[in-house]
Computed example of a mutant assay.
Amino acid sequence: MNFHSVPPLSMPWYRADDYAGVRDLCSDLPASFEEWEAGAIEYYKMGHKAFPKQKIEKIIIDAAALMAFAAEIGSDAVTRETRWKLAAKIAKEQFYS
């Protein structure tokens, strides 16, 4: 492993078929997958413009993983912060393993 490498930035990402379950846990997300996806793609593009040399990984997360992580960190709710922390944890495990 190259310890001088910069780990990728991570972004929580959801599949269309998982979105209803994720949305049930996260009332702050848009009601439809299409609306969420359009916003997420724009956010992803903004990240690339802001950090052109930085790799940004889309981290696929489903409802089961969110529930398990929330329980692991002792959170009663799945918030935006919870989702981003889980994405970072998964990316770190993938990058450093």
Rank of each mutant, 00 (worst) to 15 (best):
Y19I: 03
A20K: 06
S10D: 02
R15H: 12
P52W: 05
P30H: 01
D62F: 03
A63R: 03
A20E: 08
E42Q: 15
Y43H: 14
Y19H: 05
M11L: 08
A38R: 15
P12T: 02
F51Y: 13
P8Q: 00
P30W: 02
I59N: 05
Y19V: 02
Y19R: 00
Y43F: 15
D62A: 01
S10Q: 02
D28C: 14
G21P: 05
A50D: 13
S10R: 06
A31W: 08
D18T: 08
K53F: 10
A50K: 14
E34V: 10
G39K: 12
D17V: 13
A50M: 11
F33W: 11
P8C: 00
E42L: 15
G47T: 10
P8K: 02
E35D: 15
F33S: 09
E35N: 13
Y43N: 13
K49Q: 14
S27A: 11
G47L: 15
P30I: 00
L29H: 01
P8Y: 05
S32W: 08
K55E: 06
M11T: 00
S27K: 07
E35V: 12
R23T: 00
K49T: 12
K55A: 13
C26F: 02
W36I: 07
F33R: 08
C26V: 05
R23H: 02
R15F: 07
A20N: 06
W36L: 09
V22C: 00
I60R: 08
A16H: 11
Q54C: 12
F33P: 04
D24E: 13
Y14H: 05
G21A: 02
I61A: 01
Y19F: 09
I41Y: 11
G47S: 14
L9Q: 01
D28A: 15
L29K: 01
W13I: 00
Y14D: 06
V22A: 00
K53P: 06
C26M: 04
W36G: 12
Y19L: 04
Q54S: 12
K45I: 15
D18A: 07
P30E: 09
D18Q: 08
C26R: 01
M46I: 14
P52C: 08
D24V: 06
W36P: 07
C26E: 01
I41W: 08
E57D: 09
W36E: 13
C26H: 02
S27N: 06
M46Q: 15
Y44G: 12
H48E: 10
G21D: 01
V22Y: 00
E34P: 04
Y44W: 14
D24T: 07
K58F: 05
I60A: 14
I60N: 11
D18S: 08
Y14M: 07
H48P: 07
K53C: 09
M11D: 03
